[in-house]
Design a protein around this nucleic acid. Structure first.
Lengths: 170, 170
DNA sequence: CTTGGAATGTCAACAAGGCTGACGTAAACT
DNA sequence: AGTTTACGTCAGCCTTGTTGACATTCCAAG
């Protein structure tokens, strides 16, 4: 099981890309690339007293303004207590606004303030710059493959959330 | 800067894949996919009292048996205090062995024990299974693109480390 | 209408795993 | 002999995850 060669030919197509060696390369690529992926925003956030969790919250509030805490919870995949701590500081610092729901007063609808949008843009710009350079270096076909593999790697729930965000939320 | 259309044509090739929207998709794909990427080993480790940090150490010790602490530090990108805490528990639990260097007695060479290799295989199998499914679903060309983009996303240092591991350490 | 349960969000306390800083020891280098 | 390198460790801090307890609000069954 641990050293499946997978060097057979199946349906006329070589399966050499499924060797353990190829898979290991992908695993290590994910590890190193994710570090790069988060490095630039992390540097910016380190100066303020924020962390990656704040970035994630800001990102998704910006993506879906008015989203509820529960909604955000599902997307971020953390406990509400964990998210709450982050939100509390963001609200205290006037980057995020929490509005009591009109229909259901239990819900809180989250919005970025002007300052919040400014920080979001700063973080986003930094992360996109690296992404853009990588895309440019690899080319459009590589990018298509990149997205396909990542999507196939997600848990089913997350995949639904991703696709929903990607295709707009009708 | 924040909403560059990038919809021009450059060198005869469309640059539509470099729009902010495309970049944002890639960013979110990385976020969700990384969660899936770590989910299976995390579940296994949760039962023991280990975490992701232990997994990383075990992975790279297995990849480069006899590596030194300093070496591992550079690859993992953490402080020695942080790594040491992890290594201490792994050594105490007889999953890792630390041997004093023969040429340079200041160095400690790290090896997995039999038990260490068993755990590594268990974690590795779980992670590879997901990777294999994703590769299979996306196909060989997508996988090639996936790796290209990830490699281009890494910091230069990490890219060197990655390539060195990938091509064997001569 | 009331009451009990479900949903939503907040507060408190704890653990993992990053970090810095300081220090000690042994070996290697100059 | 003195300096540098490799490693280990102690102490303390921060972020970010966790569980447990609790308040508020909604809704539906009696």
């Amino acid at each position: 099981m641990s050293d499946s060669r997978a060097a057979q030919v199946y349906g006329g197509e070589s399966l050499l890309f499924l060797t353990d060696e190829q898979l290991r390369q992908g695993i290590e690529a994910m590890f190193f690339a994710y570090r790069g992926f988060t490095a630039d925003p992390d540097r910016i956030l380190a100066d303020m007293s924020y962390g990656r969790a704040h970035h994630r919250a800001i990102h998704f509030i910006n993506r879906a303004p008015g989203t509820t805490v529960n909604n955000l919870l599902a997307i971020l995949g953390v406990t509400k207590q964990s998210l709450n701590r982050v939100l509390r500081t963001l609200i205290a610092d006037s980057l995020v606004e929490s509005r009591v729901g009109k229909l259901d007063k239990r819900e809180r609808h989250l919005h970025l303030t002007e300052a919040g949008r400014a920080l979001e843009a700063q973080l986003s710009d930094a992360q996109r710059a690296r992404m853009r350079a990588a895309y440019k270096e690899a080319g459009p076909e590589a990018v298509a493959g990149f997205k396909q593999v990542l999507e196939a790697m997600m848990d089913a729930d997350m995949r639904r959330a991703y696709v929903k965000l990607r295709d707009g939320t009708p």
